[in-house]
Design a protein around this nucleic acid. Structure first.
Length: 655
DNA sequence: AGCACGCCGACT
DNA sequence: GTCGGCGTGCTC
């Protein structure tokens, strides 16, 4: 047996970009620090200890000076697997961020009691027999498809079915959950694990109900952001045990350890909840694909319709689409396409056809009213046709900074003195999104005899019965109705589409499609206030052309996801250095800005093609770490680099 | 972040 | 002559 290696390579748990690399420490005699162990090490002075993880062991070091000794092994449990370490590194490179920031999201805080218990139990729970569950039959999909979707390194878009179905214990779940349950069953039958990442707690509840049919309690690991620290740590440790598990959770679950991982299912990747708001802002979709590179598992994007990113990959042949052969989609009628709109007796902004249909449906069961949530940043739109006001140079959103001034582009900072609407040649820009939500009380009054249920962010309603009720829900908070709604009214269509957001169309389509999926297949959904191509697409349920058109437009305008981009903001002297370096190294990247962000801070936006992306983001990461050394003491003078998806960019624009 | 090293003003 | 200001730089 070879002598143990005495030098530990440690990644520090710190937010400082300049410490975003591995440090070597000496292991004193008798100290055992296996790879993955959580440790404490001295940093810069012997008395202040920093925590970190062992990522490697060696006999030699590149370090010129004297090595400090590793101070303490917090736990020898390998919390940081080599795979997760690799993943953290590739995410940090992709996002121009720190690996330590990724680890902070991926590994929950340690909970000693839970760890002790796990260590005792883990010895005994060695051999678990393969799970003898039958593959459920899911209408519209061939039985072979599940194994096919889970083949190693497979990448698929799984189109889910519409509608609501009952569970064995009398509850209701979206029919969409059935295909994911089948994937879970297929994974467990093969003695492997599956990670299912959904957008919100609402989805966790539904998928949990559905998965119970194929996975026993101890095979299901539910990861919730709201879970207690002990639950979170317990679930993490469970994933380290050598037995198959189905992990279900929100975006952090994409990092969850799982033995013999067969696949990662990302549900509704277009939902903005999949965009991590914490540095380095990695999107579930991208983390899943990076993890696939490392663990050779399958990735399945499951949704009613593909996101723009996934559609792009399908077009490129990078992702393979699977659609069910039967449909349970309700009929959809855009009101602008309907005839005979006499407005008498219908409430404001509700065409009488939809009003009558809703009244009729309410005699049979629940009716859903989907409203747009207020609170989106108000941009500018053409006063006459509501077309979005965009910069004619770079197609960034325009904004009026101060009253009476010309609108400025939020991206490149160039004022537009003589704006003309591209669609109708109008000259006037007005703020958008006025009058949203006014219809809610009107509609309630229009149906005085029916109970009204409201569901929104604060008032969480998960499910309603099949009894007649008017269910008014903000987008994303729609409760399930037992057996499905009899009808749905989708309000505020124009306002949703014209938001100052790159993702407005994509967001709206997904919100509508989700609402439509809650309606019984014999019911009808009315889409208000939407015309032209979006109306045609939603009416037919065929999104192919609309998405293709949107993608080609993005491509022509050099906008994501056709290209990638990064925003760099901070004190001018640092931002300028980044811009110069980018120009020197990558002639192909193009830089927008700078824009004055106020408070002595400026911002540029760097656009680059996918082909060079890893080089560009890798350089941005290195630059950020190097420039961190020359920071002032003032934390507001930090350099901030965000590698953006469309959603992320919008959040940034709103600041 | 901390904590060292380093080069200019008022003090026993 | 020296004590100490915090500007600048680094952390195995």
């Amino acid at each position: 047996m070879s002598p143990p290696r005495r030098i530990a390579q440690v990644i520090l748990d710190t937010r400082l970009p300049q410490l975003d690399r591995v440090f070597d420490y000496e292991l004193l005699d008798g100290v055992v620090a296996p790879i993955g162990a959580k440790v404490k090490v001295p940093l810069r002075s012997q008395k202040s200890l920093s925590s970190g993880y062992v990522v490697g062991l060696s006999d030699s070091t590149d370090h010129g000076g004297k090595l400090a000794a590793l101070a303490e092994v917090t736990t020898a449990v390998p919390l940081l697997s080599p795979e997760l370490w690799q993943l953290a590194e590739s995410i940090a490179n992709r996002q121009a961020g720190s690996a330590a920031d990724v680890l902070r999201l991926a590994i929950p805080p340690r909970y000693v009691r839970v760890e002790k218990k796990w260590l005792e139990g883990d010895e005994s729970a060695q051999a678990i027999a393969p799970h003898q569950v039958d593959l459920p039959v899911v209408e519209g999909y061939e039985a072979e498809v599940w194994g096919d979707l889970l083949r190693p390194q497979g990448r698929s878009a799984l189109y889910q079915s519409h509608g609501v179905v009952g569970t064995l214990d009398g509850g209701s779940v979206p029919r969409a959950t059935q295909s994911v349950s089948a994937l879970a069953a297929a994974a467990l039958r093969a003695g492997s694990s599956l990670v299912v990442v959904v957008p919100t707690w609402r989805d966790i509840a539904h998928y949990q109900d559905a998965l119970r049919a194929v996975a026993s309690e101890d095979q299901l690991s539910i990861l919730q952001a709201e879970g207690s620290p002990s639950e979170r740590y317990g679930n993490y440790l469970r994933g380290l045990s050598p037995r198959p598990v189905v992990v279900l959770g929100t975006r952090h679950a994409v990092f969850a350890p799982a033995w013999n991982l067969a696949g990662i299912v990302v549900v509704d990747d277009a939902d903005s909840a999949h965009a991590e708001p914490l540095s380095p802002y990695a999107h579930t979709r991208d983390v899943a694909l990076l993890r696939q590179q490392i663990e050779k598992c399958a990735v399945v994007f499951a949704s009613l319709l593909p996101s723009l990113s996934v559609k792009r990959w399908i077009d490129q042949g990078y992702v393979v689409a699977h659609a069910p052969s039967v449909t349970y989609r309700a009929q959809v009628i855009p009101t602008e396409l309907s005839v005979g709109m006499d407005r008498d007796q219908a409430p404001a902004r509700l065409p009488s056809q939809a009003f009558r249909a809703a009244k009729e449906a309410l005699s049979q069961g629940p009716v859903l009213v989907q409203v747009f949530r207020a609170g989106y940043s108000s941009g500018l739109a053409c006063a006459s046709c509501q077309e979005r006001g965009l910069c004619k140079l770079c197609h960034g959103p325009l904004r009026i900074v101060s009253e009476g001034q010309h609108p400025l582009c939020t991206w490149c900072g160039v004022p537009d003195a003589a704006w003309r609407c591209a669609a109708c040649s109008g000259r006037e820009l007005t703020p958008r999104g006025r009058g949203i939500g006014r219809t809610i009380s009107d509609i309630g009054k229009a149906f005085p005899t029916v109970p009204v249920v409201r569901s929104d962010g604060e008032n969480r309603v998960l499910e309603v019965s099949s009894k007649p009720a008017l269910v008014i829900a903000t987008r994303g908070a729609e409760p399930l109705a037992e057996g499905g709604y009899r009808a749905a009214l989708l309000l505020d269509g124009a306002a949703m589409l014209s938001r100052e957001s790159l993702g407005a169309l994509e967001d709206s389509l997904h919100a509508w499609e989700r609402a439509i999926s809650l309606v019984h297949s014999t019911g009808v959904a009315y889409l208000m206030d939407v015309t032209d191509a979006p109306a045609l697409a939603v009416a037919s349920g065929r999104y192919e052309h609309l998405l293709a058109h949107e993608l080609s437009e993005r491509s022509a305008l050099r906008l994501p996801p056709a290209i990638r981009l990064a925003s760099v903001s901070g004190p001018p002297h640092l931002v300028v250095q980044v811009r110069e370096r980018m120009g020197e190294m990558f002639p192909a990247v193009d830089v927008l800005g700078p824009v004055d962000m106020g408070g002595g801070s400026i911002r540029i936006i760097v656009r680059f093609p996918y082909a060079d992306a890893h080089l560009v983001t890798g350089e941005l990461r290195a630059l950020r770490n190097k420039l961190a050394l020359s920071y002032g003491r003032n934390p507001t003078q930090r350099l901030r680099i965000v590698v953006d998806d469309p959603d992320r960019l919008d959040a940034l624009l709103g600041e």
